[in-house]
Computed example of a mutant assay.
Amino acid sequence: MGKKTTGLITDEVRELINEVARETASMAYIDGMGGEVNYFRAMESLLFNYKKLAALVADYEAYTHVELQGRSASISSYSPSSGYTYRTEEDILDEMKRDKIISYHRTRARFEEIDRAVKLFAERKEFHVIRMYYFGEDAQGNERPAGAEPYTWEAIAAELEGMGLIRDAKSARRWRNKIVNDMAVCMFGKPAAVGVGTYRKERDKATD
């Protein structure tokens, strides 16, 4: 029989939650690269996925919901060391729930790190471009109608020009370059400062 009621967090699971919560978005990304990191592109990837992560962690119950389909009340499995073991449906659900809880807190820890960086830069004038280019919002941070075409740089520039902020698409791209580079340094630390500095010079030349 299971040792706990499905849905409750045991001390073991709580410790695992604490462990995965230490795994930050920046370290997870760098570890996954297995080599040289383009910090600008890394930050862009996090920004493009920011709204998706926010939606995922917004509903704990939905994220951690588990159910069995087409399974009998108990199953058996064989291990060379212990022979046959029998697991009830409750045992299986407990294990599935445990895995879902760990996954949720890992995802939430990564989202919260990105969210801190986003909020740190949210008052900067260049953040209008982040909203429009990466989040799919309008310049004021409002959700756009379903099915709206993604902003082009020309459309971004036109909307921000109407607010008296910039004059053309080139200026909008420069704003993007500046704030994303700065956010990358915030997220990834000292190693990003050198790489971002080099990339900023190269990218600015390309947009001149």
Rank of each mutant, 00 (worst) to 15 (best):
residue 156 I to S: 06
residue 105 H to T: 01
residue 91 D to R: 07
residue 81 S to R: 06
residue 133 Y to G: 00
residue 64 T to H: 07
residue 104 Y to C: 08
residue 139 A to H: 11
residue 98 R to F: 02
residue 121 F to W: 00
residue 116 R to F: 09
residue 157 A to Y: 04
residue 84 Y to V: 13
residue 45 S to W: 00
residue 42 A to G: 09
residue 43 M to T: 14
residue 57 V to D: 06
residue 85 T to M: 09
residue 43 M to P: 06
residue 83 G to Q: 06
residue 159 E to L: 04
residue 135 F to N: 07
residue 45 S to Q: 03
residue 72 S to I: 05
residue 117 A to P: 01
residue 57 V to S: 03
residue 124 R to Y: 12
residue 159 E to I: 02
residue 102 I to A: 10
residue 101 I to Q: 11
residue 129 V to C: 07
residue 72 S to L: 08
residue 60 Y to W: 14
residue 44 E to C: 07
residue 132 M to H: 04
residue 128 H to Y: 12
residue 103 S to E: 15
residue 57 V to R: 09
residue 142 N to M: 03
residue 129 V to L: 03
residue 43 M to A: 13
residue 117 A to K: 09
residue 86 Y to W: 03
residue 152 T to Y: 04
residue 67 E to G: 01
residue 53 L to H: 11
residue 150 P to Y: 01
residue 53 L to F: 11
residue 104 Y to L: 07
residue 66 V to D: 05
residue 62 A to K: 13
residue 164 G to P: 07
residue 150 P to N: 04
residue 134 Y to F: 15
residue 146 A to M: 11
residue 105 H to I: 00
residue 90 E to R: 10
residue 88 T to I: 07
residue 168 D to V: 02
residue 122 A to C: 13
residue 142 N to Q: 04
residue 64 T to P: 05
residue 86 Y to D: 06
residue 39 Y to E: 01
residue 126 E to H: 11
residue 143 E to Y: 04
residue 61 E to K: 15
residue 156 I to Y: 06
residue 41 R to M: 15
residue 145 P to H: 02
residue 96 M to F: 14
residue 41 R to Y: 10
residue 102 I to Y: 05
residue 147 G to I: 08
residue 133 Y to N: 08
residue 167 R to D: 11
